Amino acid sequence: MIYEGRQLQAAVASICPDIESRVAQFRDPADERALWWELSVCVLSSQVPFNLAIAAAEAIDKLGVLYCSQQRENVGEAIHCILRTHLNVGGRERLYRFPSVRAVQLERIHASVLANADSLKALLAGFETANHARRWLVANAHGLGPKQASMFLRNVALTYDLAIIDRHVLDYMSLTGLQSNAGSAVSSLKHYLPLEDVLRVHAEDLKCPVGILDWAIWIVMRIAKQQKGYAQ
């Protein structure tokens, strides 16, 4: 079956209410440990399989080096040692692809957070809006672009008013005519925000938060692509 833009839009609209109902049950604020776990996953999942990023984040979490505010020295060295060891991923031993780069990025994020607040939780609580929090993360959390920062803020249930614009969402925007040439993944807020504004208007038409809309788009487009069932 070939899905046209209007059919994709109808499919997205049909599942938005269900997603919104489900997430409403899980809005409890994350604690410090959970915040650092989610943030490390967002950094570690860039250009590697997600299950490998999860395994790496779990190993770092067990060490406690990020969520322990007293730990201010040798953070990068400790993380680097973990990322250089074999990780258990689905019963198989795997090596993480970018141990040095990600260790430095997480070390810098940790230092930036503690230079501005007593904890990551306190830092996030101090922002007036989720958009302000995202801007800070993009500017100060090395390794996080606007998509990853938006994902982090949604995963910790801080907001559903920011969009996660990935390849699926960009394809949906092109196929439905929301954006004639959505282009490839965007890494700067300058190019990200106009696309998010378009999605936000679309979300208002469907009467759901933009963070719920992009989730529904991801589900629909992933299924359509697996079936190779959308019109080019």
Rank of each mutant, 00 (worst) to 15 (best):
E32G: 05
L137P: 02
R200I: 02
E196P: 09
M151A: 12
G91N: 07
G64W: 14
S40N: 15
L206K: 01
T129F: 09
A11T: 02
L66S: 09
T85P: 00
P49M: 02
I82H: 12
Y230G: 06
G211H: 07
A182W: 06
V101K: 09
S100K: 08
R94D: 04
V65I: 15
A182H: 05
P146M: 06
R33A: 14
T129H: 11
G211S: 04
L114Q: 13
Q226H: 14
G64H: 08
R154F: 01
S150L: 03
H202M: 07
N131S: 14
R84S: 14
L87G: 08
W215M: 13
C208A: 01
R108S: 11
L175H: 02
V75G: 09
A13P: 12
L170V: 01
G126L: 10
F127W: 14
G90M: 01
F26P: 15
V43E: 05
H86W: 11
I217L: 05
R84P: 02
W37D: 05
A125S: 14
Q25L: 07
S100P: 01
V75L: 04
P146W: 06
E204Q: 05
Y160Q: 15
N51S: 14
I54E: 12
L189A: 01
Y67Q: 08
M173I: 05
N155H: 11
L95D: 08
I2R: 14
S14V: 05
L106G: 14
Q7E: 13
D161N: 12
S21C: 00
N116L: 04
I223Y: 10
E58T: 05
D28M: 04
L189K: 00
A139S: 07
A115H: 03
R72D: 12
L44I: 14
A117L: 07
A133F: 02
I165C: 07
